[in-house]
Simulated scan of single mutants.
Amino acid sequence: MDPFDTATVLTRVLTSGVVMSIERSDRELPALERLLTKRTGRARAVLVNSRTAAVHAALAGQGIGHGDEITQPGLNRSTAAFLSWLGITVRPGDPATFDEIVLGPGNAGELAGLARHATAPALVVDLTPIGFGPAAAVLTDDEQIWTRAERLKIFGAFDLRTMWTQEEAAPGTAPGVQFNYRLSPLVAACVRMSLTRATPPAVTAGARE
Rank of each mutant, 00 (worst) to 15 (best):
T6C: 05
T6E: 13
T6G: 09
A7W: 03
A7Q: 12
A7E: 12
T8I: 07
V9Y: 05
V9R: 04
T11N: 11
T11A: 14
T11K: 13
R12P: 09
V13C: 00
V13S: 01
V13N: 01
T15N: 13
S16G: 07
M20W: 02
M20C: 03
I22T: 11
I22P: 00
E23W: 02
S25T: 13
S25V: 10
D26M: 02
D26H: 01
R27G: 11
E28K: 05
L29E: 00
E33L: 14
R34G: 12
R34Y: 05
R34K: 10
R34P: 06
R34D: 15
L35R: 10
T37K: 05
R39P: 03
R39H: 07
R39S: 08
R39G: 01
T40E: 06
G41C: 07
R42E: 12
R42H: 12
R42I: 07
R42Y: 14
A43N: 14
R44H: 14
A45R: 06
A45Q: 04
V46N: 06
V46E: 08
N49W: 08
S50W: 00
S50E: 01
R51V: 01
R51E: 04
T52L: 15
T52Y: 09
V55K: 09
V55I: 14
V55C: 10
H56R: 09
H56D: 10
A57S: 12
L59E: 02
G61D: 12
Q62T: 12
Q62C: 05
Q62L: 10
G63Y: 02
G63S: 09
G63A: 07
H66C: 04
H66I: 02
H66E: 10
G67K: 10
G67E: 10
G67D: 12
E69K: 13
I70W: 02
Q72L: 10
L75R: 15
R77M: 13
S78A: 14
A80F: 03
A81D: 14
L83R: 13
S84Y: 09
W85E: 15
W85I: 14
L86D: 14
G87N: 08
G87P: 12
G87W: 02
I88R: 11
I88N: 14
T89W: 01
T89R: 13
V90A: 09
R91Y: 09
P92S: 06
P95G: 09
T97M: 05
T97P: 11
F98L: 00
D99G: 03
D99M: 07
V102N: 11
V102M: 06
G104R: 14
G104A: 06
A108M: 04
G109R: 05
E110A: 15
E110F: 03
